[in-house]
């Protein structure tokens, strides 16, 4: 992966100021994204995957959030950007698709107008040209009778159609990076696979990079080249998706995969569940956050976590990873 790095994140920390005290949502997260590559951020609720993603567009309210570290998008330092530059970046260089398109669209404007506005804002073209692009995009995401749908309001479309329209909006200005935050989680199975395949196809056509947030191992397998598994605000394992998800190194990744029900399981046997639940992030956890639930736990796990162990294009943050791998 020596290709051009579109996204470079180094030691990202995101802390929210809450009334009850700080919440350390993301700690010491580093990763790269190459051109044309798809990275899946995989993890359970509260692990910091969406927070990481939103930080890449600085969507968190500034007065309640402290972001530290370094984020470079297409070579530009994101954290130093002024509001005007930031707003030029959003939707143009980096674009986002959310889980619930009904909440992401403005309910009082038609789909066509919302796409056209984005195109006009970023490319300075006329309204008519914006509409033309909107139509082109709706056809591209294969919305049936697209010309008619231009004048539809978000509530007039089904969930799958809305998510397609959301993708059309996000891609209208041909961004270099698409951030997709659980875009198919709210969709039915038969529609989910349609949208996943559509995203992959559009990615090939437009040559963009994607970061895909998901809690679903199957979805990560379907779309990603590489995956980063997150737990309690940290990336605990990273690498090519086929390797990480077929031979996981970290005990949490192993546990997660074993606990996920998949076809061909022995129905008479109990599921190998991970005991306990993820920790609260109201304290800055220096040691391994998974240790209380981990079957390989030893006293050394309670020491501050060492740097990631790296080999074969993979990285893992666990002192037992190598022995665990052998087990």
């Amino acid at each position: 992966m020596s290709a051009e790095k579109l996204v470079e994140v180094r030691n990202l920390n995101v802390t929210f100021k809450a009334e009850e005290g700080p919440v350390y949502a993301v700690s010491d997260v580093s990763f790269d994204l190459a051109a044309g590559e798809t990275l899946a951020l995989l993890g359970e609720s509260g692990c910091g995957k969406s927070v990481t993603m939103k930080s890449l567009m600085r969507l968190h309210p500034a007065h309640k959030t402290r972001i530290e570290g370094q984020v470079k998008i297409d070579g530009v330092d994101l954290l130093a950007m002024r509001p005007a530059a930031l707003s030029a970046l959003r939707g143009k260089t980096v674009s986002m698709v959310f889980q619930e398109p009904m909440l992401a669209f403005d309910p009082v404007f038609t789909i066509g107008d919302q796409i056209a506005e984005s195109v006009r804002r970023h490319e300075g073209c006329s309204y008519a040209e914006g509409r033309k692009r909107a139509l082109e995009m709706l056809e591209r995401v294969r919305i049936p009778s697209a010309a008619k749908r231009l004048d539809a309001y978000p509530h007039e479309m089904s969930g799958g159609m809305r998510q397609r329209a959301m993708i059309a909006l996000a891609l209208a200005c041909k961004p270099k990076i698409l951030l997709a935050d659980e875009p198919t989680t709210a969709l039915d199975a038969t529609v989910q696979i349609q949208v996943l395949l559509l995203l992959k196809e559009l990615q090939r056509e437009l040559g963009m990079s994607m970061i895909f947030v998901t809690h679903d191992v199957g979805v990560a397998i379907e779309v990603a080249d590489r995956t980063a598994v997150m737990y309690a605000g940290r990336i605990i394992e990273e690498g090519p998706v086929d390797q990480v998800l077929s031979q996981p190194w970290h005990p949490y990744t192993q546990g997660l995969l074993a606990a996920t029900v998949h076809p061909g399981m022995n129905r008479s046997e109990a599921l190998p569940a991970i005991p306990g639940s993820p920790p609260q992030l109201t304290r800055q956890i220096q040691e391994c956050a998974f240790a209380p639930r981990c079957r390989y736990r030893s006293d050394a796990c309670l020491e501050p976590m060492p740097a990631a162990y790296q080999a074969d294009n993979r990285a893992v943050r666990c002192i037992h990873a190598l022995t665990a791998e052998a087990v």
Binding site: G160, D188, L197, I221, E222
Partner: peptide, 27 residues
């Protein structure tokens, strides 16, 4: 059949190549 083959694959070497159904469930 369509529903069962829409389930995302659990093994990286068996990714889905073709969608099985077009469109959304009707109203």
């Amino acid at each position: 059949r369509a529903l069962l083959s829409s389930v995302p694959s659990q093994t990286p070497h068996q990714r889905k190549q073709h969608k099985v159904l077009e469109g959304d469930p009707p109203n």
